[in-house]
Design a protein around this nucleic acid. Sequence first.
DNA 1: TATTGTAGTTAGCGTTAACTAACATTCCTC
DNA 2: GAGGAATGTTAGTTAACGCTAACTACAATA
Lengths: 197, 197
Amino acid sequence: MAPKVNRKTEIIKSATLLFSQDGFDRVTVKRLAHAVGISEPALYRHFKSKEAIYEAVLESIQDRLEYTQLFESLKDEPDIEVVLAEMANHIIEFFTLNIDLYRLLLYSALRGHEKAKHVFQIVRGTYIKFLQKQLDRLHSEGRIVEKRNDITARCFIGMVFDCSLGSTLWRGFQGKVHDPKEVVDNNIPIYVRGLKT
Amino acid sequence: MAPKVNRKTEIIKSATLLFSQDGFDRVTVKRLAHAVGISEPALYRHFKSKEAIYEAVLESIQDRLEYTQLFESLKDEPDIEVVLAEMANHIIEFFTLNIDLYRLLLYSALRGHEKAKHVFQIVRGTYIKFLQKQLDRLHSEGRIVEKRNDITARCFIGMVFDCSLGSTLWRGFQGKVHDPKEVVDNNIPIYVRGLKT
DNA sequence: TATTGTAGTTAGCGTTAACTAACATTCCTC
DNA sequence: GAGGAATGTTAGTTAACGCTAACTACAATA
């Protein structure tokens, strides 16, 4: 009856969406099964537990990320403005295409799920570590002033992540929701002027 | 038998802590009752439902906030560095004293609870609006450069909030957790240099 | 053709959640 | 000190959850 797609992938896709919308606890296995178009026990053919589905969702997130091209193109960039702008755009674009992910990760991190925290740390940490390395390099080249680059990197990436979240979290609420790109365009020059020698 | 404290207040206090630790859904009424030292039905004497307890928790958060003194002292401050530093310290201090709150608010906002979103918007929005007003003033006094001050304010406050959250959220994880004060001390000069005329 | 594995179904088990009925005790007020 | 409100208890009910038992349909292959 059901069309012959890859059920496992289909389940992960639906689960990612549902978990990010309502959180792990408020998504029932029944609802998830119906979202895929099968019955509950059929779902258990593919995953041994609800938790296992969740684990698979987290695994799949890591696969969706692709930084190598970005990092390659920025590793010798002399202009701090270009480094910051391209990293910010990369993050924003990713979360625009995968709006569910940041919500899901944050949700899970708040819940204290160890694996989710781990994934979040990897996603966020990869950007932070790379930016820190670039800041170190740009300082050693005499292009930017001396700073605690680990902290600067953490804050900049944090700001960009926060903006990405904000645009999905606050939609329809009193506080104005700015386009993340607009936000970054306004703030990167502040950082640049604050950092350049 | 029970000591004659104000039970309602006591319940709200326990509920705030538990909800912020585990989220609304993972806190059972039974657990909450035991945390207070009474039985489940006794708790229902004071609140008509679990949701009602949650509403009361949200109400109480607004009471805990106190900005007027801070705002009064900064409304004519000529130095952007002082404005940013004192606002940041105020937020950080508040969340250090009430570590549960930001988690709870964010948790609830993700869950989509309208009232929680509203409270979060008020807490965050009050800081942002005040900062924006000060940036407008400082610009009109010729002390800082022209910017989209709504965005600048939103990002700065977002950064501070993010740091406050980070210190409770990521504790014990691979990514270094910086002391929020240390973070602010490193980054405010960047903003200041980026903004000053 | 018989066998086997995969993917589905219906019906229901065991547990736990929120909440309630009915009754007991304490405490304030007259 | 009697009465009533406030605050507590024990022992449930109901509904929903995660998950399973038992069985079925079907395609691929020996």
